[in-house]
Nucleic acid binder design. Structure first.
Lengths: 238, 238
DNA sequence: TCAAAAGTGTTGATGCTACACCCATGT
DNA sequence: ACATGGGTGTAGCATCAACACTTTTGA
């Protein structure tokens, strides 16, 4: 890497966040309405500029707290997605954006942060055309989350501290948009050491009906071996 | 995203490249020797600043061509790894670096590019302490490549246009550092439609000895279903 | 008594591992 | 002849999808 003054070019660096949650059986994403041009009045992913002494990770977690209004975001799942740097992606200036994906257990209605722009949880399916290249970022984030559910213990990030296996299954079914076999799902999850840990003696009614379900907590494992593959791949071996 | 002049802060944006190849049965990575401070005389990953109208992907491919000396890098595998943005990662100034991973079929000795710094292929195992946070980047890249071999048709990126299944197996064994069962490997690869395509009638001697092996080309598939899992995971079910 | 959801059992099919074995080539 | 690497066959084991079935609750 050369320290060439000619090649040096200042860029603005931002973070953009694709924040997902599950509510009422639907996958939802946090969007903010833009107040200024460009794209005034359109919806966009929340985000903002890096402060002088911040890493992108720090900035992303700060923005996550500001936009959701949550006081403690330290335990939430937040990971880098990728960086978007096309020269024309912001009409005002050269902006390089590091995109992040965040997963939330429940969906508290966001209180507007410091800025006046309103924020809302929008169903992923109806998240219309967004500002900038945020449609692409959102699609990439969704694809990544869906793929990661297969081989990472990620689904618990959508769940409250204690949850039933039915709720965990609903995470998979909502993100993938497919139904899963309940008995087999249960066995796969329990067969992965460290994925979930039982809460002794506790039980909860899920929908007001049916047998009370045992409660579990997220375990220490991060990898899912063997993977929990989503069904209905088109190219399956007959 | 607010267009707040107070929050705006100019950053330098660079790309860093972890370029891998396989030669003489060893995984090698392309390193450059630094000529200036900081870290003068130490080895580092190749990279450079983004030009004003370049995306990170464009800059990465340009740097790849410059550092390897190859005239045509359009067909080479190049993908974003992640972005490193810790405030102190470059002692001179605030630099945000978008890291990429590249895979090359063979290992032509690099002719030094425009800059005088010499470049060399170094065995991954002996790639000593590198400048900046490049040790971390290199380790992340290696981890990603190893993981991606399991479920993506990535191994052909290490091979020349026509290759034998033995050469393809050597890719896996070299990156993973484990031996694979030859007959089973063959079956798994051929059972994945579009992974490799036979070159009709062609054959080649691999090591001067043994039966000539059939030649294959890379196929159009990108996903590997079912995945080709690396053996000797510690946490296996008994 | 019924509906709904949790939880357990079982069975046939599939896939995979770990080999044994044959083939073609250079020395 | 033999070493070397390519290619085929197969037996046993593990896994898994698909379903039937029981249990526990609210209405």
């Amino acid at each position: 890497m050369e320290y060439d003054k000619h090649a040096y070019e200042p860029f603005a660096v931002t973070v953009d966040l694709a924040v997902f949650t599950i509510r009422a059986g639907a996958l939802r994403v946090l969007l903010v309405e833009r107040g200024q041009e460009p794209y005034a009045g359109q919806w966009a992913l929340p985000g903002g500029f890096l402060l002088p002494k911040e890493s992108a990770e720090t900035a992303a977690r700060r923005e996550l707290a500001e936009e959701t209004g949550l006081s403690d975001v330290s335990g939430l799942h937040l990971e880098q997605l990728r960086t978007y740097s096309d020269p024309g992606r912001d009409p005002r200036m050269r902006v390089v954006s590091v995109a992040f994906t965040a997963l939330l257990p429940d969906a508290p209605e966001p209180r507007g942060g410091s800025d006046a722009a309103q924020a809302r949880w929008v169903a992923y399916d109806t998240a219309g055309p967004l500002a900038f290249d945020h449609d692409r970022i959102l699609a990439d984030a969704h694809e990544r989350v869906g793929a990661k559910l297969e081989y990472r213990c990620l689904a618990t990030a959508f769940c409250p501290p204690e949850f039933t296996l039915g709720e965990l299954r609903e995470v998979y079914e909502t993100v993938w948009g497919t139904a899963l076999d309940r008995p087999n799902f249960r066995r796969k999850v329990l067969a992965t050491p460290g994925f979930v840990e039982p809460v002794p003696g506790a039980a909860r009614l899920t929908g007001g009906r049916g047998k009370p379900a045992a409660l579990y907590r997220a375990g220490p494992a991060t990898a899912l071996h063997p993977p929990l593959l989503r069904p209905s791949r088109e190219g399956r071996p007959a």
